[in-house]
Design a protein around this nucleic acid. Structure first.
Lengths: 394, 394
DNA sequence: CTGACTTTCTTCGAGGCTTAGATTATGGTC
DNA sequence: GACCATAATCTAAGCCTCGAAGAAAGTCAG
């Protein structure tokens, strides 16, 4: 058994405070009275608590609204300028650094091209660090108000202070990216898999919004995923859960770049699809090539849909999710034209009872959400009880 | 986002009380002092809380132990006679009803043979109800002390008051077993999939003990499973999660009795293995037949191990579990001789990083644990904050 | 313009909770 | 028998949330 193990009477207030902040953050502006109804807390408690939060400048007033013949209600909202978070997307071709306020409006950006196929860890770290300084300067944010830096990387991030990253596609074998960054900044750092940061973005602001149990698929050049249980990203015992790309669909089948055979990623990512169709394309023109292939009516596409359906069926039977979100540029391209076929293929592989075809939907945020999601990782502790496994912190 | 939403100061005590009971239940007898250390609660709190629990008769003293030259410590333990739970295993060939005390000692049993392939729901319900009365009478338990009846059934149990069960193998299509039982007893009822009740048993008392994230496989005639996240069984949005048997291993492959193709269960359960080997056997002598097949060195066995390895690999990549437990009579038979091969097959399909071959282990409880696990479902609320999705309650 | 009414928000006392520190209980050691 | 060590309980203090009562800030009829 695990130990939820809450303790003192003070944790109680922390928890309730977090709940109230969540209601305010995701439910938009609300009056004290509405908050009381939403959270179940008494009006008295809401009153003292909002008093504290206002004093701390975490929330601010946001206008008034008349009430039928009574005292008008004062609306409250989270103060977007209370703090800022930096989100970083370490991608195949570039490093993107963006500064967000608490409402996740972009305040500044910095992009650095990276020569494909050559991902020197130290260079990447340097890009990130200069980028962080640049966006903070450009965004004109007071020094103490940056809450932290979230970094979405390919591959698996090991738990631990060094932020060890293993990413086959980058040729990274236990690269201590966390330590490299730690040496150059004193801001709080959070590292996580890019597919998970993107999943977090879809969960908070996109198609996953409001769901407690969901699977979010990121189909780009390769395939990644995020599993949501109980409204939170599930990371497993060693932060490596949710590797949907290496779900087996045909045991002993096509070789995958991970070294094994028959993984979903051996059939589904843009790279695998193009290879299977015999199309040559380097990562720069994958997008155009995939679009052409889709138009051409190649049988490879039909096979791909079938295999995706089989994979989704496995996910349905294992997780019984409320929703399945397909994202990533290739996923959106495929799903944009073939969502009906994908749903049908899934249904064909799945017992009717637990599966609703309409639960398979497309992502709403586009492929740029990795940095956004990485920034939310920095914000998340605000709204949580922190009694959950968190991404690696360096 | 989900809403942990704890509220009043009273929930706090309930939570701490549950934590303390858990420590006592799973950690065996302990002194107040040890409890204080284990739970992190102050000695004073432990003192008042144990006072309450003693007054309520939930715990009892269990002897003394000298301490180096000081006041001897008084040991406390959960009172096994505080209450009793009935566990029911609705199996293919029989209905087993067993009465347990809080320490999960069996106090009485009643078994009812069921003619194979004919599972009249009303008959099953009648067997259960007579069985419940019989074991309570035989166990000589005071009327008010039976805490409830837990029932492990094949197939999927829908959430809701009627306890709707869907079990293809029984030909049950939305059978309201909960309602049928409700009509015949006023005891609290809990229904869940038999693979999950067994998983719960392994989690609490068997090979899964102490793990927070685990996958427990039940391989019998068919294949079922239990997924454990955060120390609790994960049930998904509609109680249907963890259907490991319908994980795809070869998309478009062999037909499964669920109607789809390529499921793990189309290759792995005793039924599927024997079919693939061309052995005729009805459910009564499946066990002997499988044993013979294993001795014979049939190539089917090697294939089976490979496919099991592929399936486990999928589970590793999705859940990153701390441990994988293989249980069920066929699973134990297979794993008993071929555990090394199974581990190797899994490793061959899996990236080295997140997977430790030794994390695949055999179950420790044998196939009789379904009823035991069902009874624990009745006990579980005692130790929990109940703010988690629970099995269907009728 | 005034007074009644409505609705929102704040204040206050009560009841609970956990904690730290003092106190009592219970044994051994010299 | 004096002294010490450890275990368990008692007491006072500080938080927390809640319900009820009161204050605030409008509307609306006459």
């Amino acid at each position: 058994m695990s130990t939820p193990g809450r303790k003192t009477v003070r944790d109680l207030r922390r928890g309730n405070r977090a709940m109230l902040l969540r209601a305010l953050y995701f439910g938009g502006p609300a009056s004290r009275n509405e908050l009381s109804a939403q959270t179940g807390l008494s009006a008295a408690t809401v009153s003292t608590m909002t008093g504290d939060l206002l004093a701390d400048n975490v929330i601010v007033e946001a206008g008034q609204v008349d009430s039928d013949g009574g005292r008008p209600r004062v609306l409250l909202k989270v103060n977007p300028a209370y703090g800022y978070a930096v989100g970083v997307d370490v991608g195949e071709t570039q490093v993107k650094v963006e500064l967000f306020d608490l409402e996740m409006n972009v305040r500044a950006r910095a992009h650095y091209a990276v020569r494909s196929a050559k991902h020197d860890p130290e260079l990447v770290a340097r890009h990130i660090l200069t980028g962080v300084d640049a966006v903070i300067a450009e965004g004109e944010v007071p020094a103490g108000q940056v809450l932290g830096v979230g970094v979405g990387v390919p591959g698996i991030v090991e738990p631990g202070a060094d932020g060890l990253v293993r990413a086959k596609t980058f040729g990274w074998e236990a690269v201590p990216l966390g330590a490299l960054l730690r040496a150059g900044t004193s801001l709080p750092l959070v590292l996580d898999n890019g597919a998970k940061t993107m999943g977090q973005a879809e969960l908070w602001f996109g198609s996953g919004r409001g769901t407690g149990d969901a699977v979010i698929l990121l189909v780009g050049s390769g395939v990644g995923g995020t599993i949501v249980t109980g409204g939170r990203i599930y990371r497993g015992a060693g932060m490596a859960a949710g590797e949907v790309g290496h779900l087996k669909v045909i045991a002993g089948g096509r070789a995958c770049r991970c070294g094994a055979r028959g993984c979903l990623e051996a059939y589904l990512g843009a790279e695998a699809i193009l290879e299977r169709a015999g199309v040559e394309a380097d990562s720069a023109d994958e997008e155009a090539a995939l679009a052409r292939l889709l138009e051409s009516g190649s049988p490879v596409i039909g096979e791909t849909v079938d295999l995706l359906g089989a994979g989704l069926s496995s996910l349905v039977h294992l997780f019984n999710p409320e929703r399945i979100v397909i994202g990533g540029w290739a996923g959106l391209m495929l799903g944009g034209r073939l969502l009906g076929e994908i749903r049908a293929a899934t249904a064909a592989n799945t017992q009717a009872q637990p599966f609703q075809p309409e639960s398979v939907v497309l992502g709403r945020l586009g492929p740029d959400a990795v940095a956004l999601g990485a920034a939310t990782l920095v914000i998340e502790p605000f709204f949580g009880d922190a009694a959950y496994p968190s991404p690696a912190i360096a």
